[in-house]
C-alpha cells in the first residue's frame, strides 16, 4: 500500500517536472570523438564556463560529468538542459596504447582501469537520458559496432537521438559516410572546437526536446 502511494507520488511529481522545460541531454560516442569539446562549447556559449578537460589521449573523460541548468535560447524560445558528458564507449582498452602518448606503465594501467569503469558507467546512464547526442568523429569510419550498439540501445529505449558529425574543420572530414551509415537519423555536421555550425545544432536540440515532450504526453495517455 505504502509502495503504491510512493509510486503515485513519484509519477505525479515527475509529471509536474516534465511540464517544465528541463531536459537531460546526454553526450555519447566513441572515445576522442569530441563529446567533451561539444559539451564545453555549449556551456561556454550559454554559461561562460567549461564542463570538463579535453586531451588528445583517448579516455580523458573517465567519469560522468554534469552541468545543471544550462538555459539555451533559440528563436525566442528558452529551454533548460542538464548536460551529461559521458566517458567514450569502446570494446577494448589497452594500457599500452596510453604509453604511446608518453604515460608511464603505472599511470597507463591506472588510466585503463578507470576507463573500463567509465565505459560501464556510461552504459548504465543510458536509461536516465531524455535525449542523446551521439557525437561521431567525421574523419573516421562510422561503421563500427560501438556506434551501432549505442544507437540500437537508444532506439530500444525510445530516447530521441541526434547524430553530430564532429571535426568538420579537418581536411578528411566526410559527413556523407555518416549519413549513409545512419540514413534514418538527422546528422548535423559541426566543429565543436571552433564553434562552427552551432546554430543548426541548437535548432535540432530544440526539435529533439519537442519530440521528447510529445513522446511523454503520448505515454501518459
Amino acid at each position: 500500500m505504502i509502495k503504491a502511494i510512493k509510486d503515485f507520488m513519484r509519477k505525479l511529481f515527475s509529471g509536474l517536472f516534465s511540464i517544465k522545460n528541463n531536459f537531460k541531454m546526454g553526450f555519447y560516442g566513441p572515445p576522442n570523438s569530441g563529446k567533451t569539446t561539444l559539451a564545453n562549447r555549449i556551456c561556454k556559449d550559454w554559461t561562460g564556463d567549461e564542463l570538463g578537460k579535453t586531451s588528445k589521449i583517448p579516455h580523458e573523460t573517465r567519469e560522468i560529468q554534469f552541468k545543471e541548468k544550462v538555459e539555451i535560447e533559440y528563436k525566442g524560445n528558452k529551454l533548460t538542459f542538464k548536460l551529461i558528458d559521458t566517458p567514450g564507449i569502446s570494446t577494448k582498452i589497452d594500457y599500452e596504447d596510453f604509453m604511446k602518448f608518453g604515460l608511464n606503465e603505472k599511470d597507463a594501467k591506472k588510466r585503463a582501469k578507470e576507463a573500463t569503469r567509465g565505459v560501464i558507467e556510461s552504459i548504465r546512464w543510458l536509461d536516465d537520458m531524455d535525449m542523446v547526442v551521439v557525437v561521431l568523429d567525421g574523419t573516421k569510419n562510422p561503421y563500427t559496432q560501438v556506434n551501432i550498439t549505442i544507437i540500437g540501445n537508444l532506439v530500444a529505449r525510445k530516447i530521441p537521438v541526434l547524430i553530430v558529425a564532429n571535426k568538420s574543420d579537418q581536411r578528411n572530414f566526410n559527413v556523407k559516410k555518416i549519413e549513409a551509415a545512419f540514413p534514418q537519423y538527422r546528422v548535423v555536421s559541426l566543429s565543436a572546437k571552433f564553434g562552427k555550425n552551432m546554430e543548426e545544432f541548437y535548432e535540432n536540440a530544440f526539435a529533439l526536446a519537442k519530440q521528447r515532450r510529445s513522446m511523454k504526453k503520448k505515454r501518459k495517455r
Binding site: K92, I93, K113, T116, L126, V146, I148, T149
Partner: peptide
C-alpha cells in the same frame, strides 16, 4: 540483440580488469 551487445561490452570491461 542491442541489449545483449550492451551487456557484452559491460562484461568485456569487467573482464579486462
Amino acid at each position: 540483440e542491442p541489449h545483449e551487445e550492451k551487456d557484452l561490452i559491460e562484461e568485456t570491461m569487467r573482464k579486462i580488469g
